[in-house]
């Protein structure tokens, strides 16, 4: 735990308030309750207030919606990687499928926007799950490689077969009625997804997911079909991605091949690594940092990809716990040096 130095070492102790607010005693005073609820409240209120703060600057409002879309993807990635044990490097597949499904529903079948987004979420999740189904028995690296290939393959297919508008994509989707609905729909979906998944992984079915991640053999020996549970996990994660994709298509009123692009695969991963894997809230924080950075670097063209590739590498090599775990440790514990 503590780092070794000559003659002394760093000791970490839980803060008093952390210990006091464990369990039922948390309700003993406002201070303890705030200690527990504070960070969560900060995130919720912060996100909800963000559109108001950014007020009249349409550019930053658009950045905020993009942040939410990436965050949905990143939460899905984190959930799959750290609670189900499937590292899916092809997040762009979910965005692309969601965008195309929603676009087809909206333009071909005339489904209104308030119905096409939820339908694209569920249908798209189903389609992604079916596509990935044959790969579910694969482990670790192999699943990662195959999932990396899927968005490339999907884009090439659309290009080669010239379906769904080919390289032009599908145009003429309905937009959101106004800016505020655009932002608030996404922010509320994001918060629901975040707290929903956090609850899930600690109770009920979430325990089976974590079992599959820790030791799939033992789960099999417990009479549980792990492929089914992996599929459910992929469905949940890809639905989040498809939700983001559908929203993205409606924001730009267009769905096209570029929605299978590399950005959608790499930023969520970078955000998860920077924010802290396995925390679920970490990826959201990661997106809040990385996406604006990448927007600021937009003038430099592809340099931004190089920059966050370097950030990603630096974090994975030198600070693999991520900001969220680091922050949580500082929040819950204090450190001091002890002579040995």
């Amino acid at each position: 735990m503590a780092k070794q130095h000559e003659g002394r070492r760093r000791e970490r102790l839980d803060r008093g308030i952390k210990v006091r607010s464990d369990g039922v005693y948390a309700v003993s005073s406002w201070r303890e309750m705030m200690f527990l609820v504070g960070p969560r409240l900060l995130l919720i209120v912060g996100l909800l207030a963000m559109p108001l703060i950014l007020g009249g600057v349409p550019y930053w409002q658009k950045v905020l919606t993009i942040i939410c879309i990436y965050a949905l993807l990143a939460i899905g990635f984190d959930f799959l990687a750290h609670y189900v044990g499937l590292v899916s490097l092809g997040g762009a597949l979910y965005i692309g499928v969601g965008a195309y499904v929603s676009a087809l529903l909206n333009t071909e079948f005339g489904v209104p926007i308030w119905a096409s987004i939820p339908m694209a979420t569920v249908l798209g999740g189903g389609i992604c799950t079916l596509l990935l189904w044959p790969c579910l028995p694969l482990r670790g690296v192999y699943f990662a490689i195959v999932s990396l290939m899927f968005p490339l393959l999907a884009a090439r297919f659309i290009e080669a077969l010239d379906i769904f508008g080919g390289t032009d994509g599908i145009m003429g989707l309905d937009g959101f009625p106004n800016k505020w609905s655009e932002m608030y729909v996404l922010i509320i979906c994001l918060l629901l997804a975040l707290f929903g998944l956090r609850r899930l992984v600690n109770e009920d079915m979430g325990l089976v997911f974590r079992g599959v991640k820790d030791n799939d053999q033992a789960v099999k020996a417990s009479g549980i079909n792990i492929t089914y549970y992996k599929a459910v996990g992929v469905f949940l994660a890809s639905s989040l991605g498809c939700l983001g994709g559908a929203a993205l298509a409606h924001i730009y009123m267009w769905a096209g091949i570029s929605q299978f692009a590399l950005d959608f695969s790499i930023i969520p991963i970078a955000a998860t690594v920077v924010g802290g894997g396995g925390t679920l809230a970490g990826p959201v924080i990661g997106c809040l940092i990385l996406v604006p950075v990448s927007e600021l670097l937009r003038d430099f063209g592809t340099l931004r990809i190089a920059v966050y590739a370097l950030i990603l590498m630096a974090f994975i090599v030198f600070k693999s716990e991520g900001l969220m775990s680091y922050g949580a440790r500082k929040y819950n514990q204090f450190e001091h040096w002890v002579e040995i």
Binding site: V141, A270, I305, A306, A309, L310, M313
Partner: peptide, 22 residues
């Protein structure tokens, strides 16, 4: 840590390639 290896080496590759492009 095989997944980290993939992600890190991929990130290095991306950085080199996109850096060259820039």
């Amino acid at each position: 840590m095989s997944i980290s290896e993939i992600i890190a080496s991929y990130a290095i590759g991306l950085a080199i390639l996109e850096g060259l492009r820039w």
